[in-house]
Amino acid sequence: MMNQADFRFYAELNDFLPPWQRMREFTHTFANNPAIKEVIEALGIPHTEIDLILVNGQSVNFSYLLQNRDRISVYPVFEAFDITPLLRVRPQPLRETRFILDVHLGKLAAYLRLFGFDTEYHNDYEDAQLAQIARQEKRILLTRDIGLLKRNQVTHGYFLRETYPKQQLREIFRRFDLFRAAKPFQRCMICNGLIYPIDKNEINHQVPAATLSYYHSFYRCQSCHQIYWPGSHYQQMQTFINTILPQQDQP
């Protein structure tokens, strides 16, 4: 005999459900007594998006075994109020906001580096590598691949709703409240290394003479040795930064 349970998903978790299951309670049929994590992910919701599960009014973790006639309420990561007395199903937030991005998010990776966030990205990473690095280096995995977020190794991850890089950047700033943590022009947009000031006499053989005579401030990446200076491209980036960050929040 098959068992049945009633599910209700709240807020943005409905983004992962088909239209006929969104914003309403629905009945799900299942065999035996599977772990609730298995059932929720089968319905399409990655575990990294979930903060609280209530079964018959009581908070449970992902290992709870689903029973016939259970009533389940599933909530996303809470931002507005404290649920400390209840049982959170996801690990506590990471002490440092560090990211790893899947292979389709190269432009977003460059933007996050522009704003000073430690962002790991290579366009040839396999899914297994992404999950492993995210766990080992305590990074938040950003992706538009739901299946990647369902991997057990991934403890902190986020599914991007937006499809265009600039909108994705704004989405990430809102979702992780990054506005005051941003430190523009601290990281290399190419390799993620930290950049530091350098005397132009040390790079006079690497930069055109006209550039050396016109500009006085130069910077170099400590990892890939890319050289930067505040040229016209810098002004364009500053204008872009000003569209994301309130002026008073910039360092």
Score class of each variant (00 low, 15 high):
residue 109 A to D: 05
residue 92 Q to N: 14
residue 128 A to T: 13
residue 200 K to L: 07
residue 66 L to S: 13
residue 191 C to N: 12
residue 139 R to I: 01
residue 183 K to A: 10
residue 215 Y to V: 05
residue 169 L to V: 02
residue 251 P to W: 04
residue 230 P to I: 12
residue 77 V to A: 11
residue 224 C to A: 13
residue 195 I to K: 05
residue 166 K to E: 14
residue 65 L to I: 01
residue 209 A to E: 15
residue 30 F to D: 01
residue 22 R to I: 06
residue 99 F to D: 07
residue 147 G to S: 13
residue 219 Y to F: 15
residue 137 E to R: 12
residue 175 R to L: 05
residue 25 E to L: 09
residue 59 S to W: 05
residue 3 N to Q: 09
residue 116 G to K: 09
residue 238 Q to E: 14
residue 127 D to E: 15
residue 203 I to K: 06
residue 142 L to K: 05
residue 74 V to K: 08
residue 143 T to L: 04
residue 22 R to H: 04
residue 77 V to Q: 14
residue 227 I to F: 09
residue 145 D to R: 01
residue 64 Y to E: 02
residue 213 S to R: 14
residue 100 I to Y: 13
residue 174 R to P: 00
residue 175 R to F: 15
residue 174 R to K: 07
residue 168 Q to N: 04
residue 156 H to E: 07
residue 162 E to P: 05
residue 116 G to S: 08
residue 111 Y to S: 14
residue 30 F to M: 04
residue 239 T to E: 13
residue 57 G to S: 06
residue 37 K to N: 11
residue 53 I to T: 05
residue 74 V to M: 03
residue 13 L to Y: 02
residue 241 I to K: 04
residue 45 I to S: 00
residue 167 Q to D: 12
residue 106 G to F: 12
residue 44 G to H: 04
residue 203 I to S: 02
residue 141 L to E: 13
residue 171 E to I: 00
residue 65 L to K: 14
residue 212 L to F: 02
residue 231 G to E: 05
residue 131 A to M: 08
residue 221 C to I: 03
residue 187 R to K: 10
residue 208 P to R: 00
residue 247 Q to G: 10
residue 53 I to F: 01
residue 211 T to K: 06
residue 148 L to A: 06
residue 197 P to Y: 05
residue 145 D to H: 02
residue 206 Q to V: 02
residue 75 Y to D: 02
residue 34 P to K: 11
residue 246 P to D: 07
residue 18 P to F: 06
